[in-house]
Design a protein around this nucleic acid. Structure first.
Lengths: 169, 169
DNA sequence: CAGCATTATATGCAACTGCATATAACTGGC
DNA sequence: GCCAGTTATATGCAGTTGCATATAATGCTG
């Protein structure tokens, strides 16, 4: 049950890791140079801004993000500290809470999208035509299917739904 | 000069980030569960084991890896602490040094490859046929070309050479 | 409705990261 | 040969992560 991967699979794996690292690094750099916080902040703010009432339980939010539970907990700490979201008590489940985006949070999300979308265009859009981008997406999605054993990690087993990040207001 | 990315480019970007995160997480988990250190250790050991005399200057090694300079410096600390490599003085350039892999280091690299290759097969190979894997590689390589401005990041501007990680002894 | 497993969230601690900067050696110009 | 600038490597510090575990409320189950 431990067969070796083909040369093609191995090559694809290497590209996946290296190219993603390079492109993600470049995009994050662009964001930072423009004076913005990391992408994870954007992701959280975007999900919240799209949610009904601009509020979500951390549990819900976690499903959309690629952070582990404790990572999200601390991300929320920082967002709260910056006045971007509010921690409110959850009436229906007293052990939980509700995170609500503030107007300031919505503003930051919008402003970040300007820089973020430009970075995506610069580091992805400009390098590949739409047809190929679509092919790339399809191929990547193939790798998303969960495999036999329960091999977890930050984001583990969930249906291939929800686009999660990107896309403006 | 700040055009918005197409829906296709954006979708590809999202997949790239999310799928890579998931697959990389899964592979690292497999390695860890098997009692092995992180992939960066493997990468360094592999490069060294392939190098002439099993030794490289950190500067050379850095080019093959996706760590920044100080990251590599500290990775070497850990490898040394575990007896996997040796720091030797560099005769030809006294400010530098030469990192040499030990027999123990070579052994670990070989053992890790067993688990690593199995993980690649499990999380990549088994999900996609060789033809598609090759297509995926080609599409990803497209994104590797450097763009106009000097937007750095861990690994920035170098030709699309050297496979870097993976592949056994 | 008591007890026990489960879910939601937070946190102490050690390891790791990024950033800026230190140290030291090399290189070229004059 | 000396100074200015560059290259190679290391490191102090603050911020972030992962891991394990804490706290607390829920939900079964009998």
């Amino acid at each position: 049950m431990k067969r070796k991967p083909s040369a093609e699979a191995t090559a694809a794996w290497i590209r996946l890791v290296r190219i993603q690292s390079r492109v993600l690094g470049a995009v994050e750099q662009d964001l930072k140079k423009a004076g913005f916080p990391p992408l994870s902040w954007y992701d959280a703010l975007l999900e919240l801004s799209r949610a009904e009432m601009g509020a979500l339980r951390p549990v819900e939010l976690e499903k959309q993000m690629l952070l582990p539970q404790y990572g999200l907990s601390r991300l929320i700490d920082r967002l709260v500290a910056n006045g971007l979201v509010l921690r409110k008590v959850c009436e229906v489940d007293k052990r939980g809470l509700v995170v609500e985006i503030t107007e300031k949070g919505r503003e930051l999300q919008r402003k970040m999208w300007t820089a973020y979308s430009a970075a995506i265009e610069r580091h992805v859009g400009s390098k590949i035509c739409d047809t190929d981008a679509a092919k790339l997406s399809a191929l990547l999605d193939r790798l998303g299917a969960s495999c036999d054993e329960a091999s977890s990690g930050p984001a583990s087993s969930d249906a291939a739904s929800s686009p999660a990040s990107a896309k403006p207001a």
